[in-house]
Nucleic acid binder design. Sequence first.
DNA 1: GTCGGTACACTGGTCAGACCAGTAGCCTGC
DNA 2: GCAGGCTACTGGTCTGACCAGTGTACCGAC
Lengths: 248, 248
Amino acid sequence: MRFEPVAPVRAYERVVEQIEQAVVSGALKPGERLPSERELMTQFGVGRSTVREALRVLQAAEMIRSRPGDPRGPEVLAASPAALHRSMHRLARADHVGLAELLQFRMILDGSAHLLAAELRTEADLTGLDAALESMREGVSRGYAEFSRADVAFHEVIARISRNPLLVVSEEVVRGVVLELIEDKLEHASNRTSLMRTWLAHHAEVLDAIRSADGAGAAHLAKQALYDNYAEYVPAGQRPLLTPLLRP
Amino acid sequence: MRFEPVAPVRAYERVVEQIEQAVVSGALKPGERLPSERELMTQFGVGRSTVREALRVLQAAEMIRSRPGDPRGPEVLAASPAALHRSMHRLARADHVGLAELLQFRMILDGSAHLLAAELRTEADLTGLDAALESMREGVSRGYAEFSRADVAFHEVIARISRNPLLVVSEEVVRGVVLELIEDKLEHASNRTSLMRTWLAHHAEVLDAIRSADGAGAAHLAKQALYDNYAEYVPAGQRPLLTPLLRP
DNA sequence: GTCGGTACACTGGTCAGACCAGTAGCCTGC
DNA sequence: GCAGGCTACTGGTCTGACCAGTGTACCGAC
């Protein structure tokens, strides 16, 4: 018989638990309101500071939002990737996760999204992708910011076609963190125009593969494009972590 | 000229900002201590409740830990994937993520982890995997709980070999949520022993592929195993979402 | 001398009560 | 009918208090 270490359970933790439970179980839906702090305080039988600490925790997790003066009380929010983004960003800044790992993860996610997109795409999806590619083409002459926006839009369409919210959100978060990590280096890139052209060509190729329902091809092209664009920012010693993903 | 909407900045948010800044900038290293709440209160010039709400937020983000009675004050923690784990878990449990999506995501993650493991494994890793497989073999006769634990351990070794914390954490979370969703159905499975045998055979095959550095083979086996084991719980109409991932 | 126990000063956790600025909705006076 | 203010609330903050728990320094027994 072995005993487990025990940790004292704080009052505010129990409050968090109960409210969280109500939210994940669906008893409280997004948009609905929690009772006011003073009301919660009597319902839970604790002081207001305890209630407030619990609400702070839930607020930090993006589960609720409260606004002073609103007589309807704190609002329950829909699940959002903001908290995920924050924690991943923190991890990335703490050196536990380097650019190599992020890029590796992104190659996996992006590759899979493209594979699924190629297999599941409808005609309407293809039209959407054509439009997105066209915006990118226009973006080349309109400057980097515009092009970048169109690029993001293209990736979002791909992600949407793959029809997996987890994939979409994870990819979004990882893409954001990667860009934050190297944005200063991208700022100073000299040959932006030629870079955009290459990028555009990559996307056109990918689109062709998706059109012909060639999942493996689309996935490989997507991963290769990421590698070509970003590998230079990864320390040379870590690049072997990425190459296994490129084998056909 | 357009103006941006402004949001009032709460006092506790500024406190969070300052402490967070000190941690990410490295001015406060893991293991070091923050001043006591009463001391922080005079340093920041705010009330104790404000300090406490700030500390709660930082604690929820796994950046600090405080213990009553410790005269050294709150401890600064090393960045850990725990916060990432929590936020991803919340997202995965959101109602618009069904078993099909979870399984799809898990096939992607598991497949990639196996691929990387096959390419990056060292001799020591192989010994570890052999040991894990052996535990599973013993687990068959020791009952389902024991077997299940050994199975989890095997997957953890695989994930570790792939050397990507993001992959490890994501897989862990998704595996957990999948099990939560179907554990009641697994409880009542009639032919557990034969199920365990099949599972074991699957793992042995995977290990062979990893040993011979056959990344694609290992990935395919892993995905196939997941499909074989769990697809029956996915509504038949959604199974086509999974099959594209199985093509060689 | 070493070892055990104890007292003390301090920690975080919690509560009560107060005040403020802000909001929403009613309600009055035109 | 409508613009104005009034009111009853909201959350944000502060003060001050008490408690249970902890670490340490001190001190006495051996």
